[in-house]
Simulated assay, not measured.
Amino acid sequence: MLLVLPGGRAESLDPPPRLGLARLRMRVFAAAVRRRVGDAALTTAEVHYRHRGWNGPQAHPVADARAAVRELVAHAPDVRIVLLGHSMGGRAALAAADEPQVVGAVLLAPWCEPVDGAEHLRGRRIVVLHDPADQVTSARKSRAFATRAARAGADVRYLDVPRGGHAMLAGAGDWHRLAASAVTALLAAGPLPGAPPDAPAPGLTPG
């Protein structure tokens, strides 16, 4: 099961728009990843946020992500879930990745902050993709969080994707390919793509 977490805003108690760009972007992205994974049995679900924003210590999307995971498990107790989160959704995925049925998370241009803890990710498998030129969220902070998570005992891989910005529109095929590779590895318990976060940035590998 691929559970998709769209982006949002730092602060907003408004409900997300039904057809907002954040949701549409991730639906297209998730469909492309599913096609590339090549597993007809892989299904996709989406976290539906109550509020559009993270909203400081309330961290509303985290509770929504955990509720979505538990709802899936209630219907299929043996389900294995990969979280696929973009921007704010990536931050929520990191916070909720300790749910027992979550086998790992793939983070796309995630919003990471120094205050975000990583100890709960011990034993989890995480792949982070970020364009160093992203002007909305910080690739430097993403790599720093990935390093903290690795030191806390997570199996983390970090990849610089040198185009696409925050919206991942330019070079979208590269983003889809790398995300699909990561999802496949997480579901199959195979080697993760990319390099440890404290290794020199390898850039985008051809293929």
Rank of each mutant, 00 (worst) to 15 (best):
M1P: 10
L2Y: 08
L3D: 03
L3F: 04
L3P: 08
L3R: 06
V4A: 05
V4E: 00
L5K: 02
L5H: 00
L5I: 11
L5T: 09
P6E: 02
G7W: 10
G8E: 05
G8R: 01
G8Y: 02
R9W: 04
R9E: 13
R9M: 12
R9L: 15
A10W: 07
A10C: 01
E11Y: 13
E11F: 14
E11K: 09
E11G: 02
E11R: 12
S12K: 04
S12C: 01
L13C: 04
L13E: 14
L13I: 05
D14K: 11
D14L: 13
D14R: 13
D14W: 02
D14P: 00
P15I: 00
P16V: 01
P16T: 03
P16L: 01
P16C: 07
R18D: 15
R18S: 14
R18N: 12
R18F: 11
R18G: 11
L19H: 13
L19P: 00
L19F: 12
L19V: 05
G20E: 07
L21W: 10
L21S: 15
L21P: 07
A22W: 12
A22I: 05
A22M: 12
R23D: 09
R23L: 14
R23K: 10
R23S: 07
R23P: 00
L24R: 15
L24S: 10
L24T: 13
L24V: 11
R25Q: 15
R25D: 15
R25T: 13
R25C: 07
M26C: 02
M26V: 06
M26E: 06
R27T: 11
V28W: 13
V28K: 14
F29N: 08
F29V: 01
A30K: 02
A30S: 02
A32P: 04
A32D: 14
A32V: 04
V33L: 00
R35C: 00
R36I: 01
G38E: 07
G38Q: 01
D39R: 15
D39Y: 05
D39F: 08
A40P: 07
A40W: 00
A40C: 01
A41C: 04
A41L: 04
L42N: 09
L42H: 08
L42I: 07
T43V: 12
T43D: 12
T44L: 12
T44H: 05
T44G: 08
A45F: 03
E46T: 13
E46P: 05
V47F: 04
V47K: 04
V47D: 03
V47Y: 05
H48T: 15
H48A: 15
Y49H: 06
Y49T: 07
R50A: 12
R50M: 06
R52E: 14
R52S: 10
R52N: 13
G53L: 07
W54V: 08
W54N: 02
N55C: 09
G56E: 14
G56A: 15
G56D: 15
P57C: 11
Q58M: 13
Q58E: 15
A59H: 12
A59V: 06
H60N: 14
H60Q: 10
H60V: 12
